[in-house]
Amino acid sequence: MVMGLIFAIGVITFCIGALGVLIRKNAVVMFLCIELMLNGANMLFMAVSKFKGLIEGQVAVLFIMAVAAAEAAIGMAIITAFYRRRGGIEVDKAELLKW
């Protein structure tokens, strides 16, 4: 029961994050939503780690955190550069790929 609840919380957190990525235009918020999705995935890892008695899940979470930190550095750098160029952080300002 507890297990199911935690799984559900993880899944729903992930999905809310995904929803945020889909509907927000602000690049920083999109980035935050991605962090939210990672957090959701982390919860699932932790839950499985607990219920299966595997420490590996926690190792994976640590790696995800490290990668997320790296991603934050790069992501923020990109957003800063983008802001400087386009005068805003709305992703609809990036339209070079538009057909």
Partner: peptide, 17 residues
């Protein structure tokens, strides 16, 4: 098909999803 290439990032995310 090229109309799908909106250049709007959330759209691409939508396709992935």
């Amino acid at each position: 098909v090229r109309k799908l290439q909106t250049g709007f990032i959330p759209d691409y995310a939508w396709f992935i999803l």
